[in-house]
């Protein structure tokens, strides 16, 4: 198998890899079906006996859905338990998806042929355990931040309640929590750069982690702006789809088909935005590596001059500072 190397930053573009994005969507859709089907089957088991099928469950006063929910407490508990397992498997395998997606976006073969799907998946699979490690680290750190924020806010809230109206105490508590939430979100941005580092760096995962975190430390503004812009954009299709779905309702037939279309049209750009963000993260990582530095000498990266952060153009905006970035060789394992 040919060795893989990091593309020049300027060549890392999510839009050049529609198949990789489609794969990411398919992965998500497949697990969504796996999550949804037991609930569907259980509901159909009851409402399949109704001439209108599941239609009564959408009655405007909510009687049927409320009744079904109250009736099937045991079933629901079992379904939630089994779904938790499906979700856990999805999260673990999701790291392979992430690794494959990053590999497809950011790596190329030394023989200049594009990465095959097998190459990309191979790289994702090879980095599964390191990526899980990064995830655990990030969850621990982010969790600690949130716990600290909530703890402080709770203390302040209780203190303020002694002397002032709850609304004031609530607002102050929120004001205390928000920076911690933002910090936790920032952690998740850094985490993504670390993930990219782990995927694109040959050899020890620790070096990749260090590379990603250093890239974040060098250009936190570019990373946070790139992530936030895409996160904000990602809300738009969900809101639009919610409006469309509530207008259409979704009686079986054309109406339901339109709702399905609206929902999937909302999901597709979100998956693309995620890929675009990972490409952006990969550009930052690539740009943070000095020219012609091999992965075997990551320490050299320390000495490299810090590239200037550039304002982001859009979802898949250019990274002028990354243009002169290097390529480096790594082998798939």
């Amino acid at each position: 198998m040919s060795a893989l190397r990091l593309r020049p930053a300027s060549a890392i573009r999510a839009r050049k890899h529609p198949l990789a994005v489609a794969f990411a969507w398919l992965f998500e859709a497949t697990f969504a079906v796996a999550l949804a089907h037991p609930f569907y089957a259980s509901i159909r088991g009851v409402y399949g006996a109704h001439p209108d099928g599941d239609l009564p469950l959408f009655s405007p006063d909510g009687l049927e859905i409320a009744e079904l929910f109250m009736r099937s407490e045991g079933t629901t508990r079992a379904l939630v338990a089994s779904s938790t397992w499906v979700l856990a498997i999805a999260v673990v395998l999701g790291h392979v998806r992430l690794g494959a997606l990053v590999a497809a976006l950011a790596l190329e073969r030394e023989d200049e042929l594009p990465l095959s799907g097998r190459d990309a998946l191979g790289r994702g699979a090879a980095r599964l355990f390191p990526l899980l490690g990064v995830q655990a680290l990030g969850a621990l750190f982010g969790g600690a931040l949130l716990a600290l924020g909530m703890g402080l806010a709770g203390k302040l809230h209780a203190h303020l309640l002694q002397t002032s109206i709850d609304a004031r105490a609530d607002r102050w508590a929120i004001a205390v929590v928000v920076p911690f939430v933002l910090l936790a979100l920032t952690t998740s941005v850094a985490l993504d750069l670390a993930r990219v580092g782990v995927v694109v760096t040959p050899g020890r995962a620790r070096d990749g982690l260090r590379l990603g975190l250093r890239a974040f430390a060098k250009r936190p503004g570019a990373a946070i702006a790139g992530w936030s812009a895409r996160a904000a954009l990602g809300v738009v299709p969900v809101v639009l789809a919610a409006i469309v779905a509530s207008r259409l309702g979704g009686r079986p037939g054309a109406s339901l088909a339109l709702v399905l279309a609206a929902h999937q049209i909302a999901i597709a750009p979100r998956v693309a935005l995620r890929a675009s963000w990972l490409a952006h993260a990969a550009r930052i990582v690539a740009a943070s590596r000095p020219a012609a530095t091999s992965a075997a000498a990551p320490a050299a990266a320390d000495a490299s001059p810090e590239p200037k952060a550039q304002p982001e153009g859009g979802a898949d905006g250019g990274d002028a500072a990354a243009e002169n970035a290097s390529t480096s060789a790594l082998a798939t394992r």
């Binding site: 569907y40 159909r44 399949g48 109704h50 099928g53």
Partner: peptide, 8 residues
């Protein structure tokens, strides 16, 4: 009957 809306 089916429950297509629930599935969707």
């Amino acid at each position: 009957a089916g429950a297509p809306r629930i599935m969707e």
